[in-house]
Nucleic acid binder design. Structure first.
Length: 271
DNA sequence: AGTACGTCCTGATCGC
DNA sequence: TGCGATCAGGACGTAC
């Protein structure tokens, strides 16, 4: 499931593959429900002959700035992945959308589960939902995190999945961050003390930086076939496996319907 | 407003 | 062995 490090990896792959500078010569939308706005027809028309100038990221959203002044926003959903391949190369049947480029290559959006989404908008800021701070930017301070958690009764795990609290965390990196901070996923957000919030903020940054660095190394080592997903987590995601720190049995529970793994010894429910 | 839950999707895995 | 049932979850709509 693409979360911040995976989306950032995708961004850097597209930049290294020199997508910026290229123009779309034709666009094929294979699953209309993916296009959130405008209509599929206007989406295709609006992209025609447009050149990609820059590729940015906000949370889990990729932002492709076009020479028309509009922005193509891509969210990979749970199973989405992007690649650039020669137009002559046969496309996987799971490729839902194709963006032919002016150099005989093609940007392909593979998305088996169809949870990915696309937008073409004149104002990305207005189109994107309310997103919290970028966790790898200086704006993501302990104070900023504390302010978001203040007065909130939901489990800390649910809060961290909320993109308006911090942008870019998903199920996996939330578990990983809580494990690193030694905080139980069901702790009430507003019950965390200052020391715990400090540890949590540091753990989130540490997890994301470590994963991003791992992707950087893999891209360099495996170019031109860099991995789109790596095993970046340290806590086993299986009930009963041993905690790498204390060897206790890892517990698997469900929090808000999400599979959640933690160490009952390192992450006590009451403190 | 805050919290919780169902929904969209289909490949992979599970269990009989 | 085969096949139907279940699982996986990001973001959003709806409900309380």
């Amino acid at each position: 499931m693409p979360e911040l490090p995976e989306v950032e990896n995708a961004r850097r792959i597209l930049i290294r593959a020199e997508l910026p500078g290229r123009a779309f010569t034709s666009v094929r939308v294979g699953w209309g429900n993916s296009v959130r706005s405008p209509s599929v027809e206007d989406f295709v028309l609006g992209l025609h002959s447009r050149r990609v100038e820059e590729i940015d990221r906000r949370g889990k959203y990729l932002l492709l700035a076009l020479d028309s002044g509009e922005t193509l926003i891509i969210h990979l959903g749970m199973t989405g992945g992007l690649s650039i391949q020669p137009q002559t190369q046969a496309a996987d049947p799971m490729v839902r959308h194709s963006f032919a480029l002016d150099d005989r290559r093609e940007l392909r959006f593979r998305d088996p589960r169809k949870f990915g989404h696309l937008w073409l908008t004149p104002d990305a800021g207005q189109t994107l939902p309310d997103l919290g701070p970028e966790p790898l930017s200086p704006e993501f301070t302990t104070e900023a995190l504390a302010a978001k958690l203040a007065g909130r009764n939901a489990p800390i795990k649910a809060m961290l999945l909320e993109q308006s609290v911090v942008a870019g965390l998903g199920n996996l990196y939330v578990d990983e961050s809580l494990y690193g901070a030694g905080i139980h996923p069901l702790r009430t957000a507003q019950a965390l003390d200052n020391g715990e919030i400090v540890r949590l903020q540091e753990s989130i940054v540490g997890c994301l930086n470590a994963a991003t660095a791992q992707y950087d190394r893999a891209r360099d080592a495996e170019w031109p076939d860099p991995p789109s997903a790596l095993h970046t987590w340290t806590i086993p995601r299986k009930d009963g496996e041993s905690c790498p720190k204390c060897a206790a049995a890892i517990a698997g529970i469900r929090v808000r319907g999400r599979g959640t793994f933690f160490c009952p010894e390192c992450q006590k429910e009451s403190c």
